[in-house]
Design a protein around this nucleic acid. Structure first.
Lengths: 233, 233
DNA sequence: TAAATAGTGTCTCTAAGACATTATTTG
DNA sequence: CAAATAATGTCTTAGAGACACTATTTA
C-alpha cells in the first residue's frame, strides 16, 4: 500500500456577467483568504472550495456559488478553464475551475447578513475592471472577457444576457455592449434571422414609436453562425 | 481556527493526437486504478495525480505526462476542460484538468521497462475509439475530438500535427484527416495564404512530379481565420 | 512521351457592409 | 403634423466553392 500523496486545494470560481444601464458588468466579492476568515479589502471573483459532501460535480458547485450571490438559479453556465499552480494561493498548491455565468436579470444581489459583505456589480472596461483583483483573478477576468467577446462574434451568447423575451433592437444593443462597438442594423438582422437564432412571437413591445416584435431564443444552448471551410461537392 | 475540509483528488489527463498513415490517432495507456497498482486491461487517457512538489502548475504537469509517454518535449498544448464529480473515480471526489496535445512527429512511444505497459496509438473513428475507455474517458475523448475538429474549421490547429516544414499539399491532407472530409484545393490555398498562416521557404520537396514549395508556420500559436460581424464604418 | 502532383485563373454564389427608404406608433 | 424607432430594399464587395486549365518534375 502506497502512502497517500498530498492533495492540492480544489476550488471553483465564477465570472458572472450582466448588463445594466447599457454597460457590461461583472460580479465581484470581497477577497477571503480562507473560509471563515474575515474578508480583505481587495475584490475577487466569487468562489470557494469544492465541498465534497454537498457538490455532486463542478457545475453544481458553480451553480451554488451563483445562487448564493445573486439568487439566480437558471443562469447560463459555461466552463472557462482551470488555473492551478503551487504559488497562486498562499495556502499552497491550488487548482480552481472557472465558470462563466451569464445573468439575464437586472444584475441582482443577495444581501448578506453582516457588514458590507455583499457582492457588487462592477463595470467592465477594456479587458478588466479598474482596480486590481486578488491573486490571479485579473488574469482570469481578462480571459473571461476575451472569451465572451470572442465567442459573441459568431454565436448567440449575448442573448443569454437578456430576459426571455426581447426585441431585435434590444438584442443588437446587447451585442454592441458586449463587443464594445456599433453594428450595422440590416446585416445584423438578416444574420440573426437566417441563422434561426430566435423565434418570433405574436407580441410586440409598445413605445412612442412603431412597436417592435418580440422574440425568444430558439435554443437553450448557444447557436453558432455558419462558418468557413465547406466540403468538396 | 476552522477545521480543514476534505480535499478532492486533483489530476491531469492528456488527449494526445497525432497523424500517421493518413489517420488521426490518439495516445492511450492501460488504466491504472491508483498509482503503484498494476494496470487493468481497459484503455484510458494518459494522466496522473498532480505532484505538488514536482509540478509547478497544470501545464507543466501535462507536459511531464506527454514527455513520459512519447519523449516529445515541445508539443502544442491547449486546455480542453475540467471534469470533476463525486462519482467519477472510485477513490472519491476527483477533479481532472484535461489538455489536448498535438504531436508533430510520427506518433512516437517511450517503451516502458516492464510487461506490456507501453502506451499505444489508436485510430480515431467518428468521435472516439472503437472500444470503451475507463471511467469517463470516453466522454472526454469525444469532447477532445469535437474541439479539435471544430477549431480546425477556422484555425491553423492541424498544422501543429505536422513537422516544422511542410508543403501546402501536406497541410491540406492534415486538415482532411482531422476533419474527415475532402477539401477544395484552390479555396484552401487562397485561404491559408491570405491569412498568412504560413511563411514560404526557398526550399522544395522533390518527388516524381513538380516540386512543391515548403512552408513553415508563421506563428507558434494558432491563427484564426477572419470571419464574422464586422464593425460599422 | 505519360504520369503525377503543384499551382493558377475564371466564374458563380452567398453573406455581409453601406446606406437609403418605407412603416407604424405616440404626443 | 414631428419625432422616434422598426423593418425592408438595393447596390457593392469579399471570400468561398466549382472546375478547368497551365506548370514542372521523374520515369
Amino acid at each position: 500500500m502506497e502512502q497517500e500523496r498530498p492533495r492540492p486545494l480544489s476550488s471553483v470560481n465564477v465570472v458572472a456577467f450582466g448588463i445594466s444601464e447599457d454597460e457590461l458588468r461583472v460580479l465581484l466579492a470581497r477577497y477571503r483568504p480562507a473560509p471563515g476568515q474575515p474578508p480583505a479589502s481587495q475584490w475577487a471573483l466569487p468562489g470557494g472550495l469544492v465541498e465534497v459532501d454537498r457538490d455532486v460535480d463542478l457545475v453544481s458547485c458553480a451553480r451554488r456559488i451563483v445562487k448564493a450571490q445573486t439568487g439566480v438559479a437558471g443562469a447560463y453556465l459555461e466552463q472557462l478553464g482551470g488555473w492551478g499552480s503551487a504559488k497562486r494561493d498562499p495556502r499552497g498548491w491550488s487548482a480552481t475551475q472557472v465558470y462563466i455565468a451569464l445573468i439575464s436579470a437586472e444584475c441582482p444581489i443577495v444581501p448578506k447578513a453582516g457588514n458590507g459583505d455583499n457582492a457588487e456589480w462592477h463595470v467592465v472596461e477594456r479587458n478588466g475592471v479598474g482596480s486590481s483583483l486578488a491573486i490571479d483573478h485579473d488574469e482570469i477576468l481578462t480571459a473571461a472577457v476575451k472569451r465572451l467577446r470572442g465567442k459573441s462574434e459568431y454565436t448567440s451568447l449575448p442573448a443569454f444576457l437578456l430576459p426571455d423575451e426581447f426585441t431585435l433592437g434590444e438584442l443588437q444593443r446587447a451585442y454592441e455592449v458586449v463587443l464594445g462597438r456599433q453594428l450595422e442594423k440590416s446585416a445584423f438582422r438578416t444574420r440573426v434571422l437566417t441563422a434561426e437564432l430566435v423565434t418570433p412571437l405574436d407580441r410586440y413591445r409598445e413605445a412612442a414609436n412603431r412597436p417592435a416584435r418580440l422574440y425568444r431564443l430558439s435554443h437553450r444552448h448557444p447557436v453558432y453562425f455558419p462558418r468557413s471551410l465547406q466540403s468538396k461537392a
